[in-house]
């Protein structure tokens, strides 16, 4: 088990989250079952009051979750110093069987929380509050996801063994490894890049056609192609090492924390892309999505170009 101050801090906040999220969960169930806009009895008024409490609790959790996610990565980085063999957070994630699921779930939950807040905003705009039942219904599901995340996090930190040798990111993300990720490297870089840029091109096309479902779909696929090309190709240019395929090392200070910028652009771009389909489509969402996705593509392309200009060759 690992009991560094960072892990303790994360745990304390997780306990706090569990308490508040559970309160909101119980109230959400009540609201979901009994909500009736037309009723004028005391019960309905009380439910309206609860809906305010739920909204601030969820907002509170989300706005702390974002910086806490960064802190979580920081923490893994720090733990990697204690674990023999680990070079960056990737080694810590790989140290237990839960790490990968946890990270995926954490990111998924960030998307879900952000979606919830968008829905909430939408709901409050209309006098009839059409989405109230829906949004608290969604929260009930979100709560379960969130609890699994917190449980996984606890189990992960509990089962990390300081004395065990873990693998370093360069072996996890290498073509010789047997993990699922490594199959990526057997793919041809040219094909991968064509898919990546092609995908981006599709986003632009659907932007002009304003077809919300196709636009959102191309954004979902973009998350995948962006991540794969990032690991297989773009990342190596950040490290300036053809063999280093880690999606987390560039979050470190050695690379000027550029990873945070990369992931932030991707998150905002694709999140707004998705929200076009899931919420009312608005010009603003289309635009934000396109701008951030473009910035993402431009930033990564620039990294390649700058490398080429500086070194005269490609890796």
């Amino acid at each position: 088990m690992l009991l560094t101050p960072e892990v303790l801090t994360l745990s304390i906040l997780n306990v706090l989250f569990v308490i508040f999220a559970t309160i909101a969960f119980v109230l959400s169930v009540k609201i979901y079952l009994n909500w009736d806009m037309n009723s004028t009895n005391q019960k309905q008024y009380q439910l309206e009051k609860y809906s305010f409490l739920n909204a601030i609790v969820i907002k509170y959790i989300f706005f702390i979750k974002i910086p806490l996610f960064l802190f979580f990565i920081f923490t893994l980085d720090k733990i990697s110093n204690i674990l023999t063999g680990a070079m960056c957070s990737a080694g810590v994630i790989d140290a237990t069987e839960y790490g990968t699921y946890l990270i995926v779930l954490k990111i998924l939950n960030l998307y879900l929380f952000a979606y919830w807040l968008k829905l909430h905003q939408q709901d409050k705009k209309d006098e009839k509050q059409l989405y109230t039942k829906l949004k608290f219904g969604i929260y009930i599901a979100l709560y379960l996801f969130f609890m699994v995340e917190i449980a996984l996090e606890g189990i992960m930190f509990y089962s990390i063994d300081i004395n065990k040798l873990v693998s370093c990111c360069s072996s996890i993300y290498s073509s010789s490894s047997t993990s699922a990720i490594s199959t990526i490297f057997s793919l041809n870089t040219k094909i991968l890049l064509s898919i990546f840029y092609g995908n981006f091109f599709l986003i632009i096309i659907f932007y002009f056609f304003k077809n919300r479902y196709l636009f959102a779909l191309s954004n979902i696929i973009f998350i995948v192609t962006a991540l794969i090309t990032l690991i297989a190709f773009f990342g190596t240019y950040i490290y300036e090492l053809p063999s280093h395929h880690c999606p987390l090392c560039f979050l470190k200070s050695e690379y000027n924390y550029i990873g945070y910028l990369i992931y932030l652009l991707l998150f905002i771009g694709t999140f707004y892309g998705l929200s076009v389909a899931l919420l009312k489509k608005s010009r603003k969402n289309y635009k934000i999505s396109l701008i951030f996705n473009s910035l993402y593509v431009i930033l990564l392309s620039l990294i390649i170009i700058v490398y080429y200009i500086k070194n005269g060759v490609l890796l």
Partner: peptide, 28 residues
């Protein structure tokens, strides 16, 4: 910076959490 972040997370969010329910009570 990480230590500063750690201390931040142990103070500000926890204090604000303690204020949530009382604030909601008075606001409603």
């Amino acid at each position: 910076i990480q230590t500063l972040a750690l201390i931040f997370f142990l103070s500000v969010p926890i204090y604000i959490a303690a204020t949530i329910i009382p604030s909601w009570r008075s606001a409603t």
